[in-house]
């Protein structure tokens, strides 16, 4: 049951906002190394998007069916972050040492791809998971 929303306007509105905000979050994540932003901020923004959506559904757990459970996000986030660290170690560098390559992409100019971004993705996932785990649980009406 996707649950009929209490207010169609809020429903439609929140969906529209949801996707916009997610895009913003991804932008913040990717540009964080060079401009204000980063995985943490992006995670919070994305979390806000989901919270908005859930609030519109009155935190009905049924509405979240099919979504990854927050624990998976939490675990995956930490796994990605830790894995970057251990990978650099395995590659002979120090723990959590980043590396970057400069790529020339037609149309974009020179773009630096850095492993730190992977680490930041981990942070992003984890923060998102944290927001969902906490807000959704607290939002549910207690019995």
């Amino acid at each position: 049951m996707t649950g009929p929303s209490r207010s169609p306007i809020l429903d439609v509105g929140s969906r529209a906002v949801f996707h916009t905000v997610l895009v913003v979050a991804v932008y913040l994540l990717c540009s964080g190394h060079n401009a204000p932003g980063g995985g943490f901020i992006a995670g919070l923004v994305a979390g806000a998007a989901f919270v908005l959506l859930d609030a519109a559904n009155d935190f009905d757990p049924a509405a979240r069916r099919g979504r990854l459970p927050p624990e998976v996000l939490l675990g995956a986030g930490l796994a990605v972050a830790a894995a970057t660290g251990l990978t650099s170690l395995a590659a002979g560098a120090t723990f959590l040492e980043s590396d970057f390559v400069s790529l020339s992409l037609p149309g974009f100019g020179t773009v630096k791809a850095t492993t730190a971004l992977v680490f930041d993705v981990g942070v992003f996932l984890l923060v998102l998971g944290m927001v969902l785990a906490v807000v959704d649980r607290l939002g549910e009406e207690p019995e």
């Binding site: 624990e71 998976v72 939490l74 675990g75 995956a76 986030g77 930490l78 796994a79 972050a81 830790a82 894995a83 660290g85 251990l86 170690l89 120090t94 723990f95 959590l96």
Partner: peptide
């Protein structure tokens, strides 16, 4: 050498992530 210092921290963190993913 660096590995010896990092592993006591890195391994449990990675293990925690895995354990959470296998929580069932």
């Amino acid at each position: 050498m660096n590995a010896l210092l990092a592993l006591p921290v890195g391994l449990p963190v990675a293990g925690a992530a895995l354990a959470l993913l296998c929580r069932r």
